[in-house]
Design a protein around this nucleic acid. Sequence first.
DNA 1: CATGAATGAGAATTCATTCAT
DNA 2: GATGAATGAATTCTCATTCAT
Lengths: 213, 213, 213, 213
Amino acid sequence: MTEPAGRRVRTAALELFAERGFHGTGIRDLAQRAGLSTATLYHYMGTKEDLLAEIMRDSMRLLLLAAGQTGTFGTPTERIARLTQIHVLAHAARPLHTRVADDEIRALSAPVRAEITALRDEYEDFWQSAIDDGVTSGEFRVAAPTVARLALLEMCSGVARWYRPDGPLTASELAARYVEMALGLLTVDGAAPALDPGAADDMNELVSELWPL
Amino acid sequence: MTEPAGRRVRTAALELFAERGFHGTGIRDLAQRAGLSTATLYHYMGTKEDLLAEIMRDSMRLLLLAAGQTGTFGTPTERIARLTQIHVLAHAARPLHTRVADDEIRALSAPVRAEITALRDEYEDFWQSAIDDGVTSGEFRVAAPTVARLALLEMCSGVARWYRPDGPLTASELAARYVEMALGLLTVDGAAPALDPGAADDMNELVSELWPL
Amino acid sequence: MTEPAGRRVRTAALELFAERGFHGTGIRDLAQRAGLSTATLYHYMGTKEDLLAEIMRDSMRLLLLAAGQTGTFGTPTERIARLTQIHVLAHAARPLHTRVADDEIRALSAPVRAEITALRDEYEDFWQSAIDDGVTSGEFRVAAPTVARLALLEMCSGVARWYRPDGPLTASELAARYVEMALGLLTVDGAAPALDPGAADDMNELVSELWPL
Amino acid sequence: MTEPAGRRVRTAALELFAERGFHGTGIRDLAQRAGLSTATLYHYMGTKEDLLAEIMRDSMRLLLLAAGQTGTFGTPTERIARLTQIHVLAHAARPLHTRVADDEIRALSAPVRAEITALRDEYEDFWQSAIDDGVTSGEFRVAAPTVARLALLEMCSGVARWYRPDGPLTASELAARYVEMALGLLTVDGAAPALDPGAADDMNELVSELWPL
DNA sequence: CATGAATGAGAATTCATTCAT
DNA sequence: GATGAATGAATTCTCATTCAT
């Protein structure tokens, strides 16, 4: 409680947006968590959406900054390794920020969403160009580079949903493992023991039965 | 509009919950999308939460049923391959259901959440035991099997967020690729070209600077 | 359930209006209790208020009929005795009807309320004229005959709120006791051991303190 | 209108609940009577039921307090006399509170109802033990002491329904009269001119005809 | 700085009732 | 008879926000 009120508001917003989502959080909840009245709340914030936008901007800008400092030099392999590492470390170190940034884009109004989406696209461009460069250079072998980017980012971002620093792995160890997985994913050689085609058809049939259109 | 009204309500709920989230969807939205008045809406549904619970129950039960039919026999490698395949196919074929089921658990009231969580835990047990068995048999080499399960599921579930059937890959092709990735992930041999330790430290330092605790 | 539906509706209304009050009872409640759909309900009734009006009309008409047959001949003492007896017997025998009639007048719309109030006034006139005649003849000694009527009726009507036929008194015994009390009440001779005036003042003071205006 | 808004809300609730009943009073009615918008109303209250619970709690607590101060010493006759006096005075002085407390218990939700019922039972215990003590000491002669308590309370509470301070009796005079009636009721000697048995049977027959089971 | 007071709009849900079949 | 479908109006209550003090 020695923290300044303005900071407490941000912390409250971060925690509650991560926990209940933007639409699931009321300003009364924010006020209570911050230990203020709802009216006082407005001394320290603009609108509720501004609060969300701040969180997302901060989150994206830092990621973007880090990507700019690490993702622009060296071989594609090195670039992907470093991008993966900071992405995982960031998601392990700041799970609330990253979860909000990942989950609540749809809650933003059009103009802010455009702004945040632009930042995110810029960030993902670092990944995409590293992947594309790797494919061009032959370091990576992937059929659909765009799909690869999406799969990689989903996989790495998931960390924010379950990683606990008091678990068996440190954040650094976790990041190292994800780097291995990411690079493996980008150099799939098709030598993995594929299911026999008949089995694949069976699966498709099962899915069609269970989830008819 | 030849569809019966009850079905239109379910479809509207599915689409809107997936698009805007449960809390971001009002009954007015549901009514409008279903082409009914809000009062008439209640002729075809219980509460808004009932609608959500139905979607999640259906989604989880089918996944569970499919896992029961495919994830219990054969080698661990085969089991994981099949589980991955149905999971990806299901998420590609029914992205709305699976997205709602993945994203809106927190919106459920305690009793329903307990019910759905139990179904989900049961489903994830198929994965966990396949992984654990593979580790025991030596087919898989993973330091933290629980982490592996989480990473795998996150990665595969992400499909529902971006896969489009009119893209470059069919759902079957996508599933095949994910099977390869999943098996690769579980047999990481540490032989991947690790970043040199100095570089890893640099990253950690950068993260510490950008996201101070 | 062998009862005809129309009767079941009346019974349901009677029970629920007595139990929860008119405004506390919804047509859904009525339909459920009667074992019908809400739409079917309307085959057997007019509006919800009609149902209430029927109950009150029946209740008041019977009371009025009985009063007309018993309250018009004999001495004032005999008339009051008979009126008390039928009033108590009626309230013991038909507690639901009488409770609804006593409690729900305010729920009626103006025109129906006027009608029911007229019936009630007519009924109470039997009491009032018996009392007044007794005062004129000297059989009764009461300072405020109107107050006496109100007190008597309140006291006797209360029976419907608590009397149970399986209790220690039969309805006839109960009625006999009330006849005694009623006649005693009308022949109060002021000889009862009054509180000393000082004590009465103390009470007034206490009330003023506890319930300040 | 110089009254503070919070008080106006309480007054409005008291008046309207007494006039139309809890279920017959909408928040719109409360808001209009208090001169506020419905939203502003909620600045000054919890739920509608809270408002009712407050009224009932206040009413019962004061009655209980008064009973505790006056109903515990002296002879049974004196105790009943004082209990009757405060009960009648309270009902004459605060008819709205007491009417709400008497009529709307059924409108309360289970937990609050339990609380209020406990208070009421405690209050009625003062009456019951005074009556029982009087029966033991021989001061009172009543066949069914529990019935006597119920009859007494019904009779006295009725005052709140019709007493007007600008009528022929002051509240004190009214209370004195009720004390006489109460004591008379408790010392019924059976000497009242009973109806001849044949007449009583006639009445029973008439009731049976008019209100067949 | 801080807050009590205030609000129009909207939340989910229920209301009594009608009507075509 | 019986009912599924439908609804405008009303229900209680919360929303995010403003503003005078």
